[in-house]
Design a protein around this nucleic acid. Sequence first.
DNA 1: CTGATCGCCTGAGAGC
DNA 2: TGCTCTCAGGCGATCA
Length: 271
Amino acid sequence: MPELPEVEVTRQTMADRVVGGRVLDVRMGLPLRWPLGIEPSELVGRTAQDVGRRGKYLLLHLDEGLLLLHLGMSGSLSVRENPPAPGAHDHFDLTTTRGVLRLHDPRRFGAVLWSPSLDADPARKLLAKLGAEPLGDHFTADAFYAALQRRSTPIKQVLMAGEVVVGVGNIYASEVLFKAGIRPTTRANKLSRPRANSLHAAIRSVLHRAVERGGTTFRNFSNALGETGHFQVEAAVYAREGLPCRVCGTPIRQVRMGQRSTFYCPTCQKP
DNA sequence: CTGATCGCCTGAGAGC
DNA sequence: TGCTCTCAGGCGATCA
């Protein structure tokens, strides 16, 4: 499900309902991507202080240590006072004095893992290589252009890799490249400064707008309150193979890049 | 170092 | 109905 806007919306809705809660119980379902890294019982008694985010990792800071939560491909988080009995795909329940934080994740590519601090492993290792926050002050056009000069990989894969900028997943990668008029296969270091500027602006505006709208409804997304997103603007190119480009009418093309479907308009997007 | 591929899982939908 | 195949909003590990 989640790209950055969905994760950020989850962070916001979850923080309101979990901060200040003291852990009463921890229930683990089937294994997720990694083991928790601590005896669940050791979390009991700790209090949630804050919910941060780095890339697509949610950071639930406790009064000692933190939990890193990742939604993988199919995860979603909810916080409810009286949740129903856990279903087959509910693999983590953190019961607190304020409600139950629950991870629902059918494919189990998601993760919940404990780290003593941000500077210690596993947090340090997992977050070390992450690129700039696309909506943050450090993600400037200057820095973006400079980073692109060091990569000869196709721009779409540079965006997806998350080492230059985080949070641009498979859908938004196609969407922002369309908005910037750039072919996904164009090598990053071949982009001119004006085109890099245009892509930088597209990333910020598209993601900002998606967060404002509460996450996308390209597929199904619900925030930690169970409300669905309101991103009504339809995809410009994603999943529109063969359909006419909304700008020029040319049929949208689909190609595979790094085993991920990629969509573009051959007329609007220049190599 | 880079770049490309692998594999973790389940579910939905298409085609036969 | 039921099988097989492909694909799905991620990403660290592993290879050349």
